[in-house]
């Protein structure tokens, strides 16, 4: 029983971080209908930004964190303005290919700039594990979860109440009508990419803080596909719930089954659940009926 509780708690903690990264994906998909396969690389680059500011430039954690957000926003803006704006109106498959290409480019750039060596951050949080009742949570995981949840809440509030958030949702609902209100739909796309890049980068910093960083860190980004497809590609609440489900499933399945098969269940289980759920609900748990399937 103790083991189960332990697995559940760490599953929720990891799930919270997945939720944040998935949010980065959903923000972009909702506003622009673009499936961003480079989400994982946005995450990885964000982690390297943090490494640059904190370790290489020696800045304190909080300014580093803010600079990461700023630089990621610029990265998102640049990607949208320089690349994806020119793809408006092109077939979905071409745009998907562009984002896949972009993910390789970002990974290559990271290797060129920061080398392929494994790097880690200095301790950001007190090292002592956090103890809740009988359960022990690694401190990096616990605080990572707290930061991720705060970020998710801030993004959700922004999306719900801020003027720009309402305009983004209007754009997602009906682009022509949004334009007719005087909303600059194209700048909404830019905002969506910037916000998406920020969310992914924050997730990257948290994950990098837990397990260190490498240019291949972005492959964790693949895990957001079960998350967003479970939750529905265009649903923010879905991204959060999907994040928790994937975190729980991989931890519980990994914890119980890994000893018998010798590892790997953690990476496999979310995708098994994904396929099963899509059999029953082809549009995800929270998705709208008319959305495209991957």
């Amino acid at each position: 029983m103790d083991i189960l509780l332990q697995l559940i708690v760490s599953g929720i903690a990891v799930g919270g971080v997945y939720a944040l990264i998935a949010l980065g994906f959903v923000l972009i998909y909702k506003a622009t209908s673009i499936i961003n396969f480079a989400t994982g690389e946005f995450m990885m680059i964000g982690a390297y930004f943090f490494y640059t500011f904190m370790v290489m430039a020696g800045l304190p954690p909080i300014p580093s964190f803010l600079l990461v957000m700023f630089c990621s926003a610029l990265l998102g803006l640049f990607v949208e303005r320089a690349i994806l704006r020119h793809m408006l109106g092109q077939p979905t498959i071409s745009i998907v290919m562009v984002t896949i290409g972009l993910s390789s480019i970002l990974m290559g750039l990271a290797e060129m700039i920061w080398s392929t060596d494994f790097k880690s951050f200095p301790a950001l949080f007190p090292r002592a594990p956090v103890i809740i009742g009988d359960i022990i949570v690694r401190s990096n995981l616990f605080w990572g979860f707290v930061v991720a949840m705060l970020a998710v809440i801030v993004f959700a509030l922004l999306f719900k109440y801020a003027k720009v958030g309402v305009a983004m949702r209007a754009t997602a609902g009906d682009q022509m009508a949004a334009f007719s209100m005087g909303i600059n739909v194209r700048s909404m796309f830019t905002v969506a990419w910037s916000m998406g890049a920020i969310a992914a980068a924050l997730g990257g910093v948290i994950i990098g803080n837990i397990g260190g960083i490498q240019p291949t860190l972005g492959s964790i980004g693949l895990k957001i596909f079960p998350v967003v497809i479970l939750g529905g590609l265009d649903s923010i609440a879905g991204a959060v719930v999907g994040g928790f489900i994937v975190g729980l499933v991989e931890n519980i399945a990994g914890g119980y089954l890994d000893p018998y098969v010798g590892g790997g269940v953690k990476d496999l289980a979310p995708f098994v659940v994904l396929v099963l759920i899509l059999f029953i609900k082809p549009y995800g748990l929270f998705g709208k009926q008319d959305i495209e399937r991957l």
Binding site: K163, V166, A167, R169, A170, A172, G173, D174, M176, A177, A178, S180, M181, G182, I183
Partner: peptide
């Protein structure tokens, strides 16, 4: 300002949010 044919309200937004979109500029 053009009120488009078929009303084109934002169905997933509340009435209040729709009104806010009108005053967006």
């Amino acid at each position: 300002f053009q009120v488009m044919e078929g009303r084109r309200i934002f169905e997933d937004l509340t009435v209040e949010e729709n009104l806010a979109c009108g005053a967006y500029t």
